Every structure is written in C-alpha cells, then in structure tokens.
Simulated scan of single mutants.
Amino acid sequence: MPLILALVRELAEYEHLSHEVVATEEDFRESLFGERPVAEALLGYAGGEPAGFALFFHNFSTFLGRPGLYLEDLYVRPGFRGSGLGVALLSRVAELARERGCGRLEWSVLKWNEPAIGFYESLGAVPMDGWTVYRITGEDLRSLAGRA
C-alpha cells in the first residue's frame, strides 16, 4: 500500500493536483483487498524497481448491455517513460477487459496533457467529443444523498 500511495502522489504532483490527494494506505487496502473490493491495481517493474501502475475498476454500459473497465490512473515514473511499460500496463488492462467480456475500456485525460494524449492516440484511442464529465463531491454529495 505504501508504494501505491506513493505512485498516486507522484501522479497527482505531475497533474498539479497534489492538494486533492487525501487517500490513505488504509483506504487503498480496503478498496483493493477489503471485504468488497471495488478497484484493482497493476504494478509495473523495470529491473526489479517499481516504475509505474495502472488502477482500474468495472463500470457498466446500458447501451452495450455489458460491463466495461474504467482506467482511473495510468502512471509511469519519468525515468521509465518510453520503455514500453505504459503500453505493457495498458495492454494488460485491455486483456483483462477482453477476458471478462467487457465491451469497452475507457478513461479520462487532462486536456493539457499532450504527452498522454499522443500516447493514447498512438494506440488507437479516440477522444469522446460531445461528452462532458460531471462530478459531485463533499458537502454537495452529502446534500444530494440526503434527498433520497
């Protein structure tokens, strides 16, 4: 869990979002290995050294009537970029999606992250134009839940 949290923090720093990381090792332990796991993680190593990770979870497409996988994070440490580790991690997630009968694999990328966009597009990924991601958190989430 310390390694996963460290990698998440490195990713957040790269994305200029360090202030948003409030997760703890216990949060990851529970979410990945608890009574009801809700996410999975792959760790990538190069020469025995931890070099990156992919974290993903199942979603569902009502249009396809099938599950999908959502890639929450894909991160390769700077010294290992260009080594093929990112392709290896993403390929393994895609392989898991196929093995599990998923209809799609999807993720979000920050609009300014041109290196990631170029990487994803080189693999055949396409942006979902016409869609906007919405999010509700914190007090607004509590308030909305209170209306149930």
Rank of each mutant, 00 (worst) to 15 (best):
Leu3Met: 07
Leu5Trp: 03
Ala6Glu: 14
Val8Asn: 10
Leu11Arg: 09
Ala12Asp: 01
His16Tyr: 15
His16Lys: 08
Val22Cys: 05
Thr24Leu: 07
Thr24Phe: 10
Phe28Trp: 03
Glu30Lys: 02
Gly34Asn: 03
Arg36Glu: 14
Pro37Ser: 12
Val38Arg: 12
Val38Ala: 12
Ala39Leu: 02
Leu42Asp: 06
Gly47Phe: 11
Glu49Pro: 00
Pro50Leu: 13
Gly52Arg: 07
Phe53Tyr: 14
Phe53Pro: 08
Ala54Arg: 08
Ala54Thr: 07
Phe56Val: 00
Phe57Lys: 09
His58Phe: 14
His58Glu: 02
Asn59Trp: 15
Thr62Glu: 10
Thr62Phe: 13
Thr62Cys: 09
Leu64Arg: 11
Gly68Tyr: 08
Gly68Val: 10
Leu69Gln: 04
Tyr70Cys: 05
Leu71Cys: 03
Leu71Ala: 02
Tyr75Met: 01
Arg77Gly: 05
Pro78Lys: 13
Ser83Val: 09
Gly84Asn: 02
Val87Ala: 13
Ala88His: 00
Ser91Gly: 15
Arg92Cys: 13
Ala94Asn: 04
Ala94Asp: 08
Glu95Thr: 08
Leu96Glu: 12
Leu96Tyr: 04
Glu99Ile: 08
Arg100Val: 07
Gly101Gln: 02
Arg104Tyr: 11
Arg104Val: 12
Val109Gln: 00
Leu110Ile: 01
Glu114Thr: 08
Pro115Leu: 15
Ala116Phe: 03
Ala116Asn: 11
Ile117Asn: 04
Gly118Pro: 00
Phe119Asp: 03
Glu121Asp: 11
Val126Lys: 06
Pro127Ser: 09
Asp129Trp: 06
Val133Phe: 07
Tyr134Lys: 01
Ile136Trp: 08
Gly138Arg: 04
Gly138Ala: 11
Glu139Lys: 11
Glu139Leu: 08
Asp140Met: 10
Asp140Lys: 10
Leu141Lys: 04
Leu141Ser: 03
Arg142Glu: 11
Arg142Trp: 03
Ala145Tyr: 09
